[in-house]
């Protein structure tokens, strides 16, 4: 089955302005109609039920970058867990109750002082959904997909991420059954942070490898 995204972004939940009640005021577009027609047909032929579709939306909605951030913070604070996670990404996450509903494997890629990892899917939009939820729009677009493998350093610079020349860049192009999660470097000056405080620093983009994780004081300075 092709990985189909529903068309909204989960990363703007923290906006602080009120907005009007969300309602459909415009005519549905071509793909809205196509989706509705397909859904009705599948329903009618008893191939996929509405309950199954709703359940899958619930599955996706239960996966957000906060889940990945929890894993990263735990790996930063618990060396045994970190070793387990690097040795067996999926098994370690499953032992915490995170299911891999799409039956993908998971390799956790550790950033170090000498290695920086970046994740892309040049063929489509493979992404560690069980852990991070839906990918951002730019992750699925051709400019990111092409440039991540052709000129990763220039691409990263546009995200504000300057990788020194003596740091090796490893671009992971995910093409089939494997997904990748970047374990970012723990920022300096966070020795006294709790696991929860650490998790709050870890962003979605850091777990794809397009940015690094910064401590709170670095963020203010930046």
């Amino acid at each position: 089955m092709h990985e189909q995204d529903h068309d909204h972004d989960h990363d703007h939940h923290d906006h602080d302005h009120d907005h009007a009640e969300i309602s459909a005021t415009e005519r549905p577009g071509y793909f809205d109609i196509l989706q509705a027609a397909l859904e009705e047909l599948l329903n009618e032929r008893k191939l996929v039920t509405t309950a199954e579709i709703e359940r899958q939306i619930d599955v996706l909605d239960s996966r957000t970058p906060a889940l990945g951030a929890t894993i990263v913070a735990r790996a930063w604070t618990d060396p045994d867990f970190r070793q387990q996670l690097l040795a067996d990404g999926r098994g370690t996450c499953e032992s915490l109750g995170i299911t891999f509903y799409d039956d993908t494997g998971l390799i956790v890629l550790e950033n170090t002082e000498t290695v920086h990892n970046l994740v892309v899917c040049t063929l489509c939009s493979c992404y560690p959904r069980p852990l991070l939820g839906l990918p951002p729009e730019w992750y699925k677009l051709k400019p990111y997909r092409a440039r991540a493998v052709i000129e990763p350093r220039a691409l990263l610079a546009e995200f504000g991420t300057i990788i020194p020349d003596d740091v090796e860049i490893r671009v992971a192009d995910s093409t089939s059954a494997l997904r990748f999660l970047v374990l970012p470097l723990r920022p300096k000056g966070t020795d006294d942070y709790t696991e929860e405080q650490l998790a709050a620093l870890v962003t979605r983009d850091a777990m794809i490898g397009v940015v690094t994780v910064k401590a709170n004081d670095e963020r203010v300075a930046a």
Binding site: V149, P152, A154, D165, E168, I169, R170, V171, T175, S176
Partner: peptide, 18 residues
């Protein structure tokens, strides 16, 4: 992969192949 690659000669592409 790219003859005109701009970056460290140690940079690598990792991919899973059947």
């Amino acid at each position: 992969i790219w003859t005109d690659y701009a970056g460290s000669s140690r940079d690598q592409l990792y991919i899973e192949v059947f």
